[in-house]
Amino acid sequence: MIHKHAFEALDRSLKDILGCHLRNNTKLPLGGKAIVFGGDFKRILHVVPNGSRQDIVNATISSSYNWSNFKVLILTKKMRLSLQTSNIEETTTFANWILNIGEGKVGGLNDGEAIIDIPDDILITDSSDPIGSLITFVYPSIVENANNPMSFQERAILASKNEVVQEINNRLLSLFLGDKKEYLSSDSLCHSDFVHDDFDESLYSPDVLNGLRPSCMPIHKLVIKVGVPVMLLKNIDQKHGLCNGTRLRVIALGKRVTEPEIIYGSHIGKHTFIPNMSLTLSDKKIPFTF
């Protein structure tokens, strides 16, 4: 997912550093060091804001001048499937279908675009309430299992847009018992970035800042209940398991701090505290930082 320029910068840095000891290293890829890069082009490509298909392909490492020096190693054994004790055949069939999509074997000959038939067993057929059907499928008996962290360990709903995420979150939150608690952000401009003395701060009032929905920042109003499962979207404390993607269950809600329980990974069962924190956004689409 990293832009090819990052790998090329690493290549030049290693050549400079290792060339001090042996001049011939400046002519070798990555200074003569053997480095393993992990990734899968069939999953997520590098994100180029407002970029075309050509821009995205050109940003990948396979478009770098060093790509001819790489040796591609392909993993062939699905380790997660080997650890499962139930529904192995069903999961294997689904995994192979996903793999065939990534390799372009589904939908006939195509040049990056194709029409794919979704299997009936994973297709939502209720057109009147698709989100409700999706929630029922992914989280069966969610009210009865609300106090069972095990039921949320390996279940999640993926969405492509923030608007859909918010709609799903609101529907799920309404299913849990208890009182809601609202947390509001305190958005303000970073004055250190102002370069003009005649900058009119009134053009960007708090209401305007609160209404922005950048992809890498939380929404202005967060509504939550005790017992709901949540997922971290920032690396807060990697040593203690608070990383991007960590799944937690809310135990208590304070005025400026929340107490969740980690329900997945090596720190499962551990209680932690997440306070309010300051986040700074720098987006090329927005002519200021806040």
Rank of each mutant, 00 (worst) to 15 (best):
S86I: 11
N50Y: 07
D40A: 09
R53H: 05
N87W: 05
A59V: 01
R53A: 14
Q54L: 09
Y65A: 14
T76F: 03
W67R: 09
N66V: 14
N50C: 12
I74R: 12
F70W: 02
L83E: 13
T76P: 03
T60K: 03
V47F: 14
I61K: 02
K42T: 15
V72Y: 03
S52C: 07
S82F: 10
F70G: 01
L75W: 11
T60F: 04
V48G: 04
T85V: 07
S64G: 13
D55F: 00
L75G: 11
K33A: 04
S68K: 15
V36R: 05
P49T: 08
T85M: 07
V36F: 06
N66C: 13
V48T: 05
K71W: 02
V57W: 01
K42W: 08
A34K: 11
I35A: 00
Q54F: 03
K78E: 11
A34G: 03
K77V: 12
Y65F: 14
K71T: 09
N87Q: 10
K42C: 13
M79Q: 15
A34S: 13
K42A: 15
S52P: 01
S63E: 13
L73R: 09
N50T: 11
D40H: 05
S62L: 11
R53F: 08
K77F: 09
H46D: 04
F37M: 00
N87T: 04
V48S: 02
K77G: 02
R43C: 11
M79N: 14
G39Q: 04
R43W: 10
M79W: 14
L83P: 01
K77M: 10
S62G: 08
I56K: 08
F41D: 03
F41G: 07
N58L: 02
V36A: 08
S82P: 01
N87F: 06
S82H: 11
M79G: 10
T85I: 09
Y65M: 09
T76V: 03
D55P: 03
V47G: 05
G38N: 09
T76H: 11
I74P: 01
V57S: 10
R80F: 04
G38W: 05
S64N: 08
S68P: 01
S82E: 15
I88H: 03
Q84E: 06
L73M: 11
L73K: 08
V47L: 09
K42V: 09
A59F: 03
T85R: 15
T76K: 12
A59L: 02
Q84S: 05
V57F: 04
D40P: 10
N66E: 12
V36K: 00
G39K: 03
N87K: 14
S86R: 15
N66G: 05
L45E: 07
I88N: 06
Y65P: 12
G39V: 01
I44M: 11
A59H: 04
G38V: 05
Q84V: 02
F41P: 01
S63N: 14
S63M: 10
F37H: 00
S82D: 15
S63R: 12
T60Q: 05
Q84T: 03
G38K: 02
K42D: 10
S86K: 14
F41L: 02
I35C: 00
I56E: 07
Y65T: 13
N58P: 00
V72A: 08
N58E: 09
L81N: 14
S52N: 06
F37C: 00
N69F: 14
S86P: 07
L75I: 13
N58Y: 00
